[in-house]
Amino acid sequence: MITTTGLSKHFQDLEVLKNINLEVAARDIVVVLGPSGSGKSTLLRCLNGLEDISGGSFEVNGIRVGAEDSKRARQQATREIRRQSGMVFQQFNLYPHKTALGNVTEGLMTVKKMPKEQAVTIGRKLLDRVGLTDREDYYPSRLSGGQQQRVAIARSLAMEPAVMLFDEPTSALDPELVGEVLSVMRELAQEGMTMLVVSHEMKFAREVATKVVLMAEGNIIEEAAPQHFFEDPRQERTRKFLRQINEI
């Protein structure tokens, strides 16, 4: 579903991603861990065209973007990729001038040109799915962080993505609100959604992921099934990372 081949990214002289080769198969739940500044968010943003790549290439659902492609070709491929993938942000980025329902239906009406009644039907179904049936008329400012993030997930799902990218979806949440977002993500995983998740939620990685990846200093250090990753990591860097996590 997602393949990156020798993908690299630098901001001026700062190398953020170095030769990243990552494979996410259909129905995979890949959780990317790593200290801050390791490049994991940048990787996700590259895969959705929010950052240009500097070298290598990647493919999402069969659409390829290479660093050597012309700007125009890249733009075109990016637009197609965005239509087939959803993204959830750390800061939710809900549209503050739209209600919960309006946030979900906006893409359906603007991008898919769907008539309003049909979009509203789908929107209500999605809000129901993330447990917010009774909040459709609320503006984001009146929703809790957890509720906002669930609306954001519904907004992404509305576009029927083949793959979902999560960029630290629970990092901006108060601790007691993390659970409600994770449980929506769990359900999504059970339904067979392909997901690439940048996160610090160890429990989620352990229980839901099909593959866990550790990134540090712009490299992939280790990737393994969760039980191997957590019980028997091969790399010293991974052991160090896990020790640091457990000390907290």
């Binding site: 959705n48 065209g49 929010l50 637009r79 965005r82 239509r83 993938s85 959803g86 993204m87 942000f89 800061q91 980025n93 809900l94 549209y95 503050p96 001038h97 906006e106 893409g107 603007t110 991008v111 954001a152 907004r155 992404s156 509305a158 576009m159």
Partner: peptide, 24 residues
């Protein structure tokens, strides 16, 4: 982030401007 959210749902720059940025 507002523009990014709009782009990731597949909006064109013009749609994002008209539907998301300008109203705000």
């Amino acid at each position: 982030g507002q523009l990014e959210a709009a782009y990731t749902t597949g909006m064109t720059p013009w749609q994002a401007m008209r539907r998301v940025v300008l109203p705000q």
